[in-house]
């Protein structure tokens, strides 16, 4: 069974059509959740609106559970699922730079596309900034390469790293997420957002 395209169950040509369809679903949900508003997105960092946290972690745990159950019933082969490789330092430093970009710019790339689609000019500027950032990276690639390639751990999963089963890890993450949602709900009550 799945994944369908890497196993050539459906033809490669469908790939882009599926990409487009998946993108529509992705964009629609992001916009519906309110990710097209930078003030809603930034809200999570000040406690007045935890929508990012809720959507992001609900999405992540749903994805985890979905994949594990599909694998359990033999509907998907987890060996053929792309696991992004871990290069520790570039992931940390890159994440720090992205975090700074998040709080300064108020978007991340996916949400900026979605916000630009409904006419947010700040999102379009943010999106333009991404081009410049990537160009800068391309131009400084040789210089940053040692950091980019450092501490390669392979395509490793967290469950392998700490030596527990994927299901058990997912269970712990679900509990952590539920606790986090509870804290977020409390925070939203504590720091009510002013109407604007």
């Amino acid at each position: 069974m799945g994944p369908l395209i890497p196993q050539e169950i459906i033809a490669e040509g469908w790939n882009f059509l599926i990409a487009f369809g998946v993108g529509i679903g992705f964009g629609f949900i992001l916009e519906q959740a309110g990710f097209s508003s930078s003030r809603k997105l930034a809200g999570v960092f000040y406690g007045y609106d935890a929508v990012v946290l809720k959507v992001f972690f609900t999405g992540a745990i749903t994805g985890m559970i979905g994949l594990l159950y599909l694998s359990l019933f033999d509907w998907i082969d987890l060996n053929l699922i792309w696991v992004n490789p871990t290069y520790l330092w570039s992931a940390i430093i890159g994440g720090i730079i992205m975090g700074a970009g998040f709080i300064v710019g108020g978007f991340c790339p996916g949400t900026s596309v979605c916000a630009a689609a409904i006419g947010k000019i700040d999102a379009m500027v943010f999106f333009g900034g991404i081009f410049i950032g990537i160009l800068l990276f391309g131009e400084t690639f040789e210089w940053i390469k040692p950091l980019y390639m450092a501490e390669y751990w392979g395509q490793i999963k967290l469950s392998e790293l700490i030596g527990i089963s994927q299901g058990l890890l997912t269970f712990f993450i679900i509990i952590a997420a539920l606790l986090m949602f509870w804290v977020a709900e409390m925070a939203e009550k504590k720091f009510p957002q002013k109407e604007y």
């Binding site: 559970i65 159950y69 033999d74 987890l78 089963s165 299901g167 058990l168 997912t170 679900i174 997420a177």
Partner: peptide
């Protein structure tokens, strides 16, 4: 979610 998590935590992984 809690229930789904418990189930997936304790069923053996599909290692086929």
């Amino acid at each position: 979610y809690f229930g789904l998590g418990i189930i997936i935590a304790f069923v053996p992984e599909n290692t086929t």
